[in-house]
Write a protein that binds this DNA or RNA. Structure first.
Lengths: 124, 124
DNA sequence: CAGGATCCAAAAGGATACTG
DNA sequence: CAGTATCCTTTTGGATCCTG
């Protein structure tokens, strides 16, 4: 059972902040975002946690990191990979399910939700 | 951010075994399953863990429990609720994503996968 | 700007044994 | 059959401070 695909998927996506980070990377018009930018958007996440999650996501191929070594200090840019982009669809459905069955969240029910960045799965 | 629908969803579905339990309830032809039956299917799950997860899922409305008090000893039957049934679709997509991008799991790639009970999302 | 290091508190989960 | 209870280990995550 522990070699079940589904079980293993939870090691990738089942950790705190992970889905929110992916969604944050999806938000807005810029396809790349910097560390402190993400940190600010995520509010009360610690740098340690954000760093840990970004490394996991990069290792699993959902997130790509680009470095601008010419800048001083060095700048890093994070973006969704192709697989990460595709996973956003699932995230939307999870959110859609939550809005339908569990949470009456007005902020999430409008398309410009500043927390989640996507509306119900069917709207987007 | 912590009142984000997505963030809160992880408290419901992001715990170990949760998705596998839901999938187990979905498997097969019987729509109800007993505690020890589930336990056997899930292999190395402890009764404590299964009990905890089932209670959480019941509290969140994804799982329904029925008692046969006339039986001695009393028997309990678990099944997916309507919302739980609907969540199976998302589970299939998570699994489909995993098979496409991460894991080459032959057991999961065939429709009668004895571990997961469903094939790729598009097949089922 | 982009983290790393350290320390600590809390939670989660496994092992095992037991019960009505 | 359907769980509880207890104990104990491991993991996780938050706080805080530091650095090139």
């Amino acid at each position: 059972m522990k070699d079940c695909t589904l079980y293993k998927m939870m090691d990738i996506i089942g950790k705190r902040w992970t889905l929110c980070i992916l969604l944050e990377l999806h938000k807005g018009d810029k396809y790349q975002k910097q560390f402190n930018e993400l940190k600010a958007m995520l509010g009360d996440i610690t740098p340690k946690m954000l760093s840990t999650r970004l490394k996991e996501l990069e290792a699993h191929g959902l997130v790509e990191k680009e470095l601008d070594s010419s800048a001083i200090p060095v700048k890093s840019f994070y973006s969704l990979s192709e697989s990460g982009q595709e996973f956003i669809e699932i995230i939307k459905e999870i959110k859609g399910w939550g809005l339908k069955w569990k949470f009456d969240n007005p902020l999430c029910s409008v398309s410009d939700c500043r927390y989640c960045g996507v509306a119900k799965a069917t709207d987007n």
